[in-house]
């Protein structure tokens, strides 16, 4: 007999696959995805492993993996997949689900928050602010510091950021997106 927890996991996994438009049975584990994945060396669950987890019903391993945060979205896996299994879609959906379930990789969380703050303030991405704030918050204050003097000398990064004028509109848009995202489009 399946436990309640198992049933709930299965329902969540089925929902995830449906939203991602991925069918777990399409994958026959050939490994061409992982073979070509530029980030495979750093992933604790390789792209093929993600598909394997969908087959054996282990949602937890997917949402707790670093894979969903390290995937660069380069789409090499699905490009070469003989069955066109859209792993990037699955990973993106898994990221939303992981966020709902409270499993967000720390560095990704900091970066996303800094990014969003940036957009709220300027409507555009202020690269120095993004990198600087991220480095401080993620306790890597020295990351890329050697390049800063070069960037400042050549005015590659400025103190006064370029920006979208209508930041009020941008903030309204972000608020709406956050509000509506609980009603995500069903016809994915």
């Amino acid at each position: 007999m399946q436990s309640e927890k198992q049933k709930e996991q299965k329902e969540k996994l089925d929902e995830l696959l449906r939203k991602a438009d991925v069918r777990q049975y399409d994958c026959y584990q050939c490994g061409k995805c992982t073979g070509g994945c530029p980030m495979a060396h750093a992933m604790d669950l390789k792209p093929r492993g993600v598909m394997r987890c969908t087959q054996i019903g282990s949602l937890e391993r997917i949402v707790k993996s670093n894979t969903i945060w390290l995937c660069t979205g380069c789409h090499t896996c699905v490009e070469r997949c003989p069955h066109d299994v859209n792993i990037p879609n699955l990973i993106e959906e898994a990221r939303y689900l992981a966020a709902e379930m409270g499993y967000v990789r720390r560095d990704s969380k900091i970066l996303n928050e800094v990014f969003l703050a940036n957009i709220r303030m300027f409507g555009r991405n202020h690269e120095m602010l993004l990198a600087g704030l991220y480095n401080m918050l993620s306790l890597k204050p020295l990351q890329d510091m050697p390049t800063v003097p070069h960037m400042l000398t050549h005015k590659l990064i400025g103190v006064l950021p370029h920006q979208t004028k209508n930041t009020a509109g941008i903030n309204r848009m972000i608020a709406r997106a956050e509000k509506f995202s609980s009603m995500r489009p069903a016809g994915k």
């Binding site: 050939c30 490994g31 995805c33 992982t34 070509g36 390789k46």
Partner: peptide
């Protein structure tokens, strides 16, 4: 066990990249 994902050449040497599944 695994399907080769990419074959490329570097200095006359072929490199086959895949996964040992």
């Amino acid at each position: 066990r695994g399907r080769i994902s990419k074959i490329y050449e570097e200095k006359g040497q072929l490199i086959c990249q895949g996964e040992d599944t």
